[in-house]
Simulated assay, not measured.
Amino acid sequence: MDALPIELVEQILGLACADAGRTMCALRSTSRSLRAACDPFRFHTVAVTTHRQITAFLAAFTQSSPPAQASVRHLFVVICGFSIEPGNQILRATARTVETLALVCTARYKGLPAHDALLQTAFPRLVALTVRYRAIYLHAVMARSPPAPVPTLPRLRYLHVAPTDTASLGFAQTCIFVFARCAGPRLLRVRISRVRGTETLSEALEEVLGLRPGRGVLPPLPTGIRYFILDLYWRYGAVQNVVETLETLERRAAEERAIHLRVLHEIRPAGKTPVDWEEEWLRVQTGEVDMRAEWLEDHGERLVAAT
């Protein structure tokens, strides 16, 4: 490696850092010169899923060089009951440079994991955010999160919120509103998972989309969002006439509001596990799947066109 041009070494290291840090750790132990060359890529792509990994990463990060600390671009974090504060510290420490963030909260306690770090810390470069929370915690976030004087997520374009519990459309809309007021005008694509399918869903969705006069119960879809994906969960199976009405709404939203509405129907009662989320995230980082696949345009068959 010492005989290779530095430009080629940097290209190799850039390709080697997409597996959540495994290859980078191996390369850094090869030689002193390679260890130094790895510094600007050291934390480029990181996944921490246990309390032990979170505390180990936090210790390594705080002791690393400034180039290494500035290398964080893609981050996957699972926050459990024992790792709430260390997890918050990681979010705050990496907020300046991280571009994509997947946050999975599995904590079951009376407080609110990652509340302050996620909604009250500025993430100036964050483009894509995926959040998996228990719905009750997200309700608490909404109730106690005043709007920031300036957007804390100014470059956010992709947002995916996935409660571990099924949630009503009203909850989903309030959730979008909270994150949208933290984002700037670039937020274009929103996905909400685990929305509870009901027989009155189509009427409520019409109000949200501005396709019928509102009653002031549900907040409208924020201005600027052009791709809106709902993952519905039907406890006793989808109601056929509602499904047909939702398909009609997809066409009306595109024609009358220029909104690409896509309604998907979940088949797993329990939703995805943290392991499922990590596997999907790793497939994106290694290039096997396009990042935009999480914000599908057409029922999982086409990717959203780049803007």
Rank of each mutant, 00 (worst) to 15 (best):
A204R: 12
A238G: 02
A117M: 15
T152V: 15
L118C: 09
R226Y: 04
A143Y: 14
V217T: 09
A128C: 11
G184N: 11
L159K: 01
L218G: 01
L201C: 09
Y233I: 03
Y133A: 07
L221T: 08
E206W: 11
R191D: 03
S145C: 15
V243K: 05
L159T: 04
V195L: 05
S168A: 07
P185T: 15
R125G: 09
I225F: 03
R155D: 08
D116E: 15
L230E: 01
I136D: 13
R157D: 09
P213C: 11
R194H: 03
I229H: 11
P219A: 06
Y227Q: 13
R215Y: 10
V239S: 12
L169I: 14
Q240S: 12
L201W: 03
Q240V: 08
I192N: 08
A238R: 01
P146V: 04
F177Q: 14
W234H: 06
Q120A: 14
L169P: 08
L153G: 06
P124C: 10
T121I: 13
P185Q: 11
F228K: 05
V243C: 03
H139D: 12
A122W: 12
L211G: 00
D165N: 04
L205K: 02
A167L: 08
P222E: 04
R226M: 13
V243F: 02
A183P: 02
M142T: 12
P154Q: 13
L201A: 05
T223A: 14
R189W: 07
V161P: 02
T130W: 11
P220R: 08
P222F: 03
R134V: 08
V127H: 14
T223L: 06
Y233S: 02
D116Q: 15
H139P: 01
A162I: 00
F171L: 12
G197L: 01
A167D: 01
I136E: 14
H139F: 09
A167E: 12
L153H: 09
A135W: 13
A122E: 12
Y133D: 12
R132S: 06
G197K: 01
P220K: 00
A117P: 07
N241D: 07
T174S: 12
S202L: 04
E199R: 10
S145L: 01
L126P: 01
P219C: 01
L126G: 00
L169A: 07
V127M: 12
G197C: 02
T121G: 05
T200Q: 06
A204N: 14
R186L: 14
V243P: 03
L169Q: 07
E206L: 10
V178Q: 14
V161H: 11
A135Y: 07
R189D: 07
P213F: 06
R186H: 14
I136Y: 11
A183W: 01
P219K: 07
T174V: 09
L201S: 06
R134K: 10
P213K: 02
G197R: 01
G210I: 00
P222H: 04
A172T: 08
P219N: 05
A143E: 15
A117Y: 09
L118K: 10
N241W: 14
T223P: 00
C175F: 15
E206C: 08
V217F: 10
Y158V: 04
V178M: 15
